[in-house]
Write a protein that binds this DNA or RNA. Sequence first.
RNA 1: GGGCAAUUAGCUCAGUUGGUUAGAGCAUCUCCUUUACACGGAGAGGGUCAGAGGUUCGAAUCCUCUAUUGCCCACCA
Length: 951
Amino acid sequence: MAELDKQYNSKQVETKWYTLWESKGYFRPASDRGQKTFGKPYTIVIPPPNVTGILHMGHALNSSIQDILVRWNRMKGRDTLWVPGVDHAGIATQNVVEKKLAKEKKTRWDLGREKFLEEVWKWKNENGSTITRQLRRLGASCDWTRERFTMDEGLSRAVREAFVTLYERGLIYRGHYIINWCPRCQTALSDEEAAHKDVQGGLYHIKYPIAGKSGPYEKMGEDHIVVATTRPETMLGDTAVAVHPTDPRYRHLIGKKVILPLLDREIPVIADDFVDPEFGTGIVKVTPAHDPNDFAMGHRHKLEQINVMTPDGKINERGGAYKGMDRFEARKKILQDLEEQGLFVRRDSHLHAVGHCYRCDTVIEPYLSKQWFVKMQPLADKALKAHKQGKTVFTPDRWTKVYLNWLKGIRDWCISRQIWWGHRLPVWYCAECAQSQTGKTTDQRPQTRDQKLQSPVSSLQSDGAIVSREDITQCPRCGSKDIKRDEDVLDTWFSSWLWPFSTLGWPATEASAGKPSKSADLKKFYPTSDLVTAPEIIFFWVARMIMAGLEFMGDVPFRQVHIHGTVRAASGLKMSKSLGNSIDPLEVIEEMGADALRYSLVMLSAQDVYLSREKFEVGRNFANKVWNACRFVLMQLEGFQEASTDTRQFDKIKLSLPSRWILSRLEEKIAMIEKQLTQFSLAQAATELYHFVWDDFCDWYIELAKPMILSEDQALKLQTQKVLFFVCERMLRLLHPFMPFITEEIWQKFKAKADQSDLRGRSGPTSEVGLGRCPDTLMLASWPQEEKKKFHDAEAQKAIGFLQDAVGGIRDLRVRFQIAPTDKLKAVIVCKEQATLETVQAFEREVKVLGRLAELQCVREFEKKGAMAANSFAAFDIFISLEGVLDPETEKKRLQKKIQETEAWIETIRKKVENPSFAQKAPKEVLEKEKEKLADAQKLLVSYQTQRASF
RNA sequence: GGGCAAUUAGCUCAGUUGGUUAGAGCAUCUCCUUUACACGGAGAGGGUCAGAGGUUCGAAUCCUCUAUUGCCCACCA
């Protein structure tokens, strides 16, 4: 058999195995391959990354976690499906292509809609698969045969089906409201797409003259009021000023008029409860077209709405002299003009939250425009009910509250976008119908989007809107061919929220059939099992998916939502390309391997992950350790013909103590890891494995196995080989979900060994996964099961505990007295009890090897002679000869310190044990433990005292 | 303004439902090129578990308050 290289070549191994896994269809569900499965199907859908995106650390963490869960469940024999895909990211993708055009000094308008979309598709086809290629590098075992894109045919049909259905149910309406507008992207945004950031801005105090007191402003004296605003440019659209109805300072002004400066318009002073007399001057300027509060106030007082801005954030013709200026330019000029006219009072520094476009970071403008909305309350109610029934569980649990709070404060969802890349609204307008209906429509639109003011909405018919599952060329009502399709497209999340079922083939029938039926995949895999995602996406996506699942499928889309931490740079900031603090996962993969990346990330993922490059060394070092440990084991198996993972083989053999011990430890770890994976504690599971491999297996078992392998006792040699093979093989299975590549590479060598003999008789319910014999790939090997405590061995654990103490004691003495490792020592172990002596004698040889001793005596009684140093434990003392090295004074001091420590310790325990309440209330085991501890401490104290006395 | 999280060794973090003398990795120091691994081995030093109260036989762990940091949400101009 070819020996493994000393160095692990991750790059070569990763490509080799990924290609093979994919080409053999191992990523597909077992049922697709006609194989037997166990338990319920297990399904995950990937949170679809942005098609413009590249893999960043957040994705890497997210995908690693999902892959661990998927591979674990696949090994357990469940019918496992992981559906991958990307979303079309309307605004982001359009921005990318527009930027490209800008380099050629062109805009999308120059190309026109159709040509432009061709460009976007071209871009998508050329660049859109970057991220999925990168996911492959990571080792993600997605079923690529089921890969989906939100703009592909099936998903587009789902979007249209969803839109029309909601419209028919009266849950979609069109209306004129204040929405979040990005002047750069020139589109409406949903509330979630407006990211609020605290900005240190100004609160500007401005005089508005009271009408009727005409004359030059300079002579106004007290004949004015002062309003405070953060956005002075919007004053061009003011149609009132408001005060609180009971404010004694201004009550007399209510009903009077003031003059809007700069434009010289008369506007009324109104009274409204909304105004907070404590804030600013207690007077608010009211701009219904540019502020959501003012919009609501405007409705209450039937005020005119004056929109003073163009879609690209410039002042329009209603802004008089300021027409054509950019909004911020206009702000400056207005303040300047006001100052010149003596109407500017002062600027207070003011910290306030300002909305920014989450795609381009431009300051958002609250803007009055006609948009389409989803009425969310009925959807949220269903989600709240489903939560009460415990249909979806969040881990960690605290996110449940975040989710519920959002649902409870739900607001209608603005879904129309004034861009081109996306699903165009399936809405047509008939010119003739619109005309004939003029004046006789009953407009049931809510007065504002404010929750409390919403009336039950039915669909809006007033402008002759026709909503259709199929494209139409003439009006179904009047037959007119004078119809026009709505220019807008839908919010990208309007397709993402259907993701869990649209990717599984919903709607299965042609959309025209009206009642979508379930596809085979949908029947088998919906609802899915787990959703793994980052917290920032709960509102955008998770909550909406739950609502959509309930609305369209009648059931939640997933049973569990696992929220993992956010990946941040070491500085604490979010990692992002624009900040230049990101670490490219691909670079880490190149440098250290995908396994190293995955393992490091998962180990750190117990909470938010703060990354720096060095942190990946943990994973790299561990991968190297695994590699070399297995390399060693394989080297010991030369000529070995009895490789088997059949646990029954150990029944007939009298195993050595170290072998019993490692099997017992393995058993414990299997149980523990099972528990932790079930609880989503992946970081803990990874840490457990890390310590099992490194501490138990490498540092102790391999070292203990060396002398046994070299032993002349052929039976001992053989059983040690068996145990090495067995433990190592199981270890690889346990590690596989975390580090798939390296484990597969090594495991194949083990398999080659096992094929020569038998790898058949595995036990446990999942043992037949694969082929009923050794499967071709570790991916499909069975997941190790705790075997009814078969290997649990308290005696061996205790014995090896003694051994570790003894060896540790000797090593400590060597270092403390600077004895070269090559100096062979003589040591004596003095046991305090006969039973201990027998245990210690059983591993005399091992202690000699590991402690590099020339001679070892194990005795009950021992008289110290000459200069000897000792290390004491509760069960035994170890002495070594130190002629000419030992300084009695130093040693006495050390012992004195130890005695003091031990006495203090004993005192603490005694207090505890002798406390009657403790004896009464503490559980028996704890009491026993404490008593044992006390006895041990006392033994130790005696040892120290005896030693000190001997000097 | 509301909510959530974090605060444990020089640094980065574990610490399961309260129960050994609070752990790991990195860094530091000492020793070791011992035939799996120097991406290694052996050992050592280093912590009043943010602070103050409280519950308890017993608190890093549960409760209250305070401080600092971070995140999310929010229509007071």
